[in-house]
């Protein structure tokens, strides 16, 4: 009996480890095809990537209301959409947090924030938190630049928006802009992955 108990504990522990290990390393790599989704927008409508017939790709950004890093980037996210939506690369913002843990990220708060900051792009709720783990997002803000190809939406860049979270005027490399510009010019993206500090996605 005791042995069985031990065995159960062993199995439990190993599955647990396998699980936590998996959640860290999983997610898209450059060149993978990203899943589409149907998520609720702040206007109550459902939004999918496939709705955008004319888009050349997407700037998918996992972001939220409550993370200081995400907040520091809000204006720059709006600027990205202003600059690139008309060129075929709209911003699609997805809020990945569990709103029971972070009530400040619930749909009402998302609506209020989008209005206050003048979001020009969809701000979607990852209800049930099914989408961000597939992308492999770990934090906010976390950008996935997708290019529409015949095979599907191919991941072209993963990471930060630029290299200065503190001060938009002191940025020296605009990673996302450089990547989108490269795609628009049919050139190779120079920096395909970057790291930045962000707030853990709340589960």
């Amino acid at each position: 009996m005791k042995r069985l108990k031990l065995l159960t504990v062993f199995v439990l522990v190993t599955t647990l480890f396998a699980f936590t290990g998996k959640s860290v390393s999983d997610g898209y790599k450059i060149g993978d095809l990203a899943t589409d989704f149907s998520l609720e927008n702040i206007d109550g409508k459902m939004v999918s990537l496939s709705d955008y017939k004319d888009a050349k790709g997407f700037i998918v950004i996992f972001t939220c209301n409550t993370c200081p890093y995400a907040v520091a980037y809000e204006d720059r996210i709006v600027a990205l959409d202003r600059k690139y939506a008309s060129k075929g690369y709209p911003v699609i913002a997805i809020m990945p947090n569990n709103t029971d843990v972070k009530p400040g990220d619930n749909m009402e708060a998302m609506k209020a924030r989008a209005k206050a900051k003048g979001f020009t792009f969809p701000y979607l709720m990852d209800k049930g938190q099914k989408i961000y783990p597939q992308y492999g997002a770990t934090k906010t803000p976390h950008v996935y630049l997708l290019e529409k190809t015949r095979k599907g939406n191919e991941v072209k860049y993963i990471g930060a928006i630029d290299d200065n979270y503190k001060d938009a005027t002191a940025v020296t490399t605009k990673y996302v802009e450089d990547a989108v510009d490269a795609l628009l010019d049919g050139k190779e993206i120079k920096v395909k992955e970057t790291r930045a500090i962000g707030c853990t996605i709340k589960v």
Binding site: T138, K139, A160, N164, K166, R195, I197, G198, I201
Partner: peptide
């Protein structure tokens, strides 16, 4: 240090940048 893309992988190659 704003150059996070330098020091995050330097601290650990697998660190996405999420804290803690």
């Amino acid at each position: 240090d704003t150059d996070q893309n330098r020091w995050i992988p330097a601290i650990n190659k697998d660190w996405s940048g999420a804290i803690p």
